[in-house]
Simulated assay, not measured.
Amino acid sequence: MGLNVVLRSAVMRGLAGGPRVLLVACPGGTAVRLAAEAAVGERGGRLALTPAEADVLLVAGEPAAELRSAVDVLWGQMPGPRRLGQAARARDVGAVLEALLPGRGDGGRAARSAPWAPSGGDGETARLGEPVMAGRGEDRDGLRLDVLRVPLGPVLPDWPAGLVVDTVVQGDVVQRAGGRVLPFAGPRRPPFWHAGKSPDARRRRTAAAHLDSLGRLLAVAGWEAAAREARRLRDRLLDGEPERGVRADVGAWRRRVERSRTLRWATDGLGVLTPADAAGLGVSGPAARARAPHDATARWRRWLEEADGLLAGGPVRDGGPRGSATVEAVPPSRGLLAAAVERMPGRELSAARLLLASLDPDPDELAAGRAPGGTRGVGVR
């Protein structure tokens, strides 16, 4: 990292007025991640988009070995002063974050707030997401371009927890992609978004899940203000606020989102998933119900429509917000991940990220029912 980048990030952190928290969510740690996002906002902070602009690194959940290694790399990329902490449970987030805020801890790394000591970074490990040279290949125009292996995840901002999409890129265009989910480290629990025994609780939880997915997509698209509002509305539902009041604000926010020409320009025609394709991949839920032309725009519109319908008292249509498991008990998110990686070749990396966000597979679903420490992957050539 150059001196100018360090100085610029330090100035921006000072101007921000609150902590800039780089949040790493672990598989199975959805409840902790939601609590952390809310706690950062309550303390006047912002979620950082890069290590260079962060002063706090907060791990939400319990990371297994590979995810710990990724956290070590992030730590090595952060300029000082920097602090590291981990909250294994949602109820621990407030206390851990308070201990990490500038002026309230010990002024050092705060590594004692995590059960492991970071192995440094600082020149000891490759930079996270750094492309690895894999050879040279012919471009469509006859030019010989570098062929690079570029992993997306597992610790990108606004990225599904613990998901890794391994890509082969020529120029800035994806040639091949394959997805996998890192293993759980903590106790195995049902997916967070499937909770809720009563119809009212399931309806509220499902609407909140759609708002969570919308917040991630809007953030990846670069519309951070709309993403923050989606998360605030989500949190109000999860906090038990009456649905009628939340629905009124969802309606006003929805109209603003649907009128955005910039958002539609970014998502129109992206990742078309026809009903026949969805059926073949085992995709159900909102992604399968999206109307023609069945692209990313149709999918985020479907999330908006179904969230509003649920808040109006409509029924929950599936076993979870992403659909129902197949007769072979395959989670719907497995089909969503397969649909995403199949449609990445030929796309630039930024479009590939937006494509994945428009399908938003849930790693908690992908890992549920799997033997501890196991991984599953899907990919195409």
Results as ranks from 00 to 15, higher is better:
Pro154Ala: 11
Val327Asp: 13
Arg43Tyr: 04
Gly61Glu: 05
Leu100Val: 04
Ala266Gln: 14
Asp158Ile: 08
Thr297Phe: 09
Thr206Cys: 08
Leu359Lys: 06
Leu366Arg: 04
Ala338Lys: 10
Val272Pro: 03
Gly171Gln: 07
Asp139Leu: 14
Arg112Gln: 14
Ala252Ser: 13
Gly107Ala: 11
Thr326Gly: 15
Thr267Leu: 12
Leu359Tyr: 04
Ala110Trp: 01
Val11Met: 10
Gly215Met: 05
Ala368Thr: 01
Thr50Ala: 15
Ala292Gln: 13
Glu243Tyr: 00
Asp239Lys: 14
Val173His: 11
Ser198Arg: 14
Trp75Arg: 02
Arg149Val: 14
Gly135His: 02
Pro118Tyr: 05
Ala95Val: 10
Val316Arg: 08
Glu98Trp: 14
Ala276Lys: 10
Pro183Trp: 05
Gly121Ala: 08
Leu49Asn: 12
Thr375Asn: 09
Gln86Leu: 15
Asp106Gln: 11
Arg104Asn: 11
Val257Ala: 10
Ala252Trp: 08
Val73Pro: 00
Ala99Arg: 15
Ala35Leu: 09
Leu84Asp: 01
Ala276Thr: 14
Ala339Trp: 00
Glu243Cys: 05
Arg299His: 09
Glu138Gly: 11
Arg299Gly: 03
Ala114Val: 03
Thr206Asp: 10
Trp223Glu: 13
Arg289Pro: 03
Pro332His: 07
Asp360Gln: 11
Thr274Glu: 09
Pro131Ala: 01
Ala134Pro: 01
Gly319Ile: 03
Leu354His: 02
Ala117Leu: 14
Ala70Trp: 04
Val283Lys: 06
Trp223Phe: 13
Leu359Arg: 12
Gly178Thr: 02
Arg232Gly: 12
Val316Ala: 13
Arg189Pro: 07
Leu356Phe: 12
Asp212Gly: 15
Gly269Arg: 10
Gly373Gln: 00
Val316Gln: 03
Leu49His: 09
Ala230Gln: 00
Leu238Cys: 10
Leu304Ala: 07
Gly196Thr: 09
Pro81Met: 02
Leu74Ala: 02
Leu359Phe: 07
Lys197Phe: 12
Asp122Trp: 14
Gly282Phe: 08
Arg301Ala: 15
Arg91Glu: 15
Val40Thr: 04
